[in-house]
């Protein structure tokens, strides 16, 4: 079991649309991701990065091929399994997608409460702790409207990580940020991932952060054209 990679994709194909408009976006993609690693998906716009990420993250139904996530085959899995599995994953979106009505701390708590009615104080401590780790210990009770873009994305990172997910999927988490804060966010992701053994798969256009990756996979027109491992 331990030897199984957290993500194994084999012969993945995906189509969008139906009838005449039906168009293949992903062609025979196969890949494996090592436990605890930071894998970056690169490629030009429209090459299928987001599609592959959403298929792996169980946000989209697998049509053809196999995606094996944390030992579970996603092709043909039911909706209940889907919700249960999602709780073992963390997501960071391009836009931070924080809830405007909730404070930084409450947004992070949302990442914990999904695991059930746990110990409230414990949840609060965990949320405050993770916000401290991303450097927002002073801004726990701020609403997103009063935080900068970089700070909001760090709250989103905290929300994704607070539940100790086994895998974190991030789609261009730095796109809306300036160079310094973008790099800070990725460094935090990587540091927290290493500390907790979290596997991270990140889509990015940002070549300035490639040096942080353990593996880089390049997609072009729905196919993998390059794989690099850093050692």
């Amino acid at each position: 079991m331990q030897a199984d990679p957290p993500i194994r994709v084999t012969g993945l194909n995906h189509w969008f649309g139906s009838g005449e408009a039906r168009k293949q976006a992903i062609f025979d993609v196969s890949l494996e991701v090592d436990r605890g690693s930071l894998t970056i998906l690169m490629g030009p716009s429209g090459s299928g990065k987001t599609t592959v990420l959403t298929l792996m993250g169980r946000l989209r139904d697998v049509q053809d091929g196999s995606v094996c996530l944390l030992g579970e085959e996603l092709n043909g899995a039911g909706a209940t399994a889907q919700v249960a599995l999602r709780r073992r994953l963390g997501f960071i979106f391009q836009a931070h997608n924080l809830h405007d009505s909730l404070t930084a701390r409450q947004n992070v708590l949302m990442g914990l409460e999904v695991h059930g009615r746990g110990d409230k104080d414990g949840y609060q401590r965990a949320a405050d702790h993770v916000l401290g780790l991303v450097g927002l210990g002073e801004r726990l009770d701020y609403l997103p409207g009063n935080l900068s873009g970089g700070q909001k994305q760090r709250v989103a990172v905290a929300r994704a990580l607070v539940g100790n997910p086994e895998i974190v999927f991030a789609d261009e988490p730095t796109a809306a940020l300036d160079k310094a804060s973008g790099r800070t966010v990725v460094e935090m992701l990587k540091a927290l991932g290493r500390e907790r053994g979290t596997t991270t798969v990140m889509v990015t256009h940002d070549s300035r952060i490639l040096d942080l990756a353990d593996a880089i996979i390049t997609l072009e027109e729905g196919q993998i054209t390059r794989r690099e491992e850093s050692s």
Binding site: V83, A84, R86, R87, F93, A95, H99, D100, G111, V114
Partner: peptide, 15 residues
């Protein structure tokens, strides 16, 4: 108005 937030919560695993 909150579809985005709800979609995000769905991704987090809320039923």
């Amino acid at each position: 108005d909150h579809l985005r937030e709800y979609a995000t919560f769905k991704a987090l695993g809320y039923p």
